[in-house]
Design a protein around this nucleic acid. Structure first.
Lengths: 220, 220
DNA sequence: TAGATTGTTAATCGATTAACAATC
DNA sequence: TAGATTGTTAATCGATTAACAATC
């Protein structure tokens, strides 16, 4: 309770470690040193060891890390070892695309899709019939929902987010181009696609102007 | 040439400033101080002033910043004041959703959509007919393309990225869940949706364990 | 054992925040 | 002018990298 949480810089890197380890596993690589992994991932070996040691000692001196074990452990840290239920609110193009996305692979299962447009009612997306938003409260109260994905228009996003909070949702994956005003007890992860494109725009228009590479493997 | 580029931490914050200023503009707010903006955006006034002064002095002592002027200037820094052409490679759910997204608003125009599946050929998305990938090289060489959006399966992403580089594309917006191996002259901005969801998963499963809030307005 | 590589402490680097003189 | 607020320098904080003793 009194100790400082792990910095978001570290958390953001975990999925990338997980991805690289998954690929090593597919290629039947049994063990790997922080040095070897650092070369593949284009980061420092120090950073890898520091990052991992936030969560415990997963390696062995003189040997390195067992790929399968480390992969599993990072999966557990990220909560990918249990099935988590997700609902999608907003069944427009993006909402439907996400419903069709293969999130099972990382333990997430879409169990409900909602929209306000009556013309979409009952339409099946990825085998799930679209429900109307007025059924949302009942649905949330009768199901265990871990994450609510918000793919509604900007003008509706804040109102819905507040309702979600009221109904007990504590994690929102927000694709609406706005900041949500919810209490600190609710986790919000924003995916602002237009802002992502803007930073790409800046970078390629200013490439070559700076001394160092602008090419980063992180999503910045 | 010899000076250090502006840090990516600063660049990442610009779109959010742009968004807040746009909203102030809509509400007919004429001027704003860094202090007032800092309260709305939940950042420090120091950070706002430091960030902006990387690009020049946009404010006036004793007055603050003119909202419209600052909005326009940040737009120019991000390159939103000119129309930029974009193509989308991969016309699956996500590719089609992005084709329908309103990027005009920030100056981006989708002028081509490509896929390898012959069953999609000629199908119109957002008024644009899907073309086959074997037409890609010719299309790129006869059009000015600023950004190529990659929404193809993981297994095809690297091959296509290398071809895009060869054909002269210098900015790739990558949605495939893999790192691309292109030269440093090509800007890559990754959007790894599964990894975004993983960090949300970590955060809400570990909420309350740390001293400070995990709720951030940045996409971390 | 000798070599390799971790876990961890110390040093460096960069980013954020505070402070304040300049000035509108 | 007096008050407000910037632009900018200095101080702090945190994150990254380097170094190395511990140990497999």
């Amino acid at each position: 309770m009194s100790e400082r949480g792990i910095s978001s810089a570290v958390i953001r890197r975990l999925p990338r470690y997980y991805r690289y380890l998954g690929e090593l596993l597919e290629n039947n690589v049994v063990r790997i040193s922080s040095k070897e992994l650092s070369i593949r991932m284009k980061v420092t070996a120090s950073q890898i060891r520091q990052d991992l040691n936030n969560f415990g000692g997963f390696g062995q001196q003189g040997y390195g890390y067992n790929v399968e074990y480390l992969f599993e452990e990072i999966g557990k840290i990220l909560g990918l070892n249990t099935i988590q239920n997700m609902i999608i609110i907003g069944a427009g193009n993006l909402g439907q695309a996400l419903a069709n996305y293969d999130f099972d692979r990382i333990g997430f299962r879409v169990i409900g899709i909602f929209d306000a447009n009556p013309r979409l009612e009952g339409l099946a997306v990825h085998g799930i019939e679209i429900k109307m938003v007025d059924e949302l409260e009942e649905f949330i109260k009768t199901h265990e929902i871990h994450v609510a994905t918000l793919t509604v228009p900007k003008k509706n996003a804040r109102t819905i987010a507040s309702q979600l909070e009221e109904w007990g949702i504590c994690a929102i994956w927000n694709f609406a181009p706005t900041d949500l005003h919810v209490s600190d007890d609710v986790c919000v992860k924003n995916v602002h696609l237009d802002e992502s494109l803007m930073t790409l725009s800046y970078n390629f228009r200013n490439r070559g102007k700076e001394k160092y590479s602008y090419h980063s493997y992180m999503d910045d």
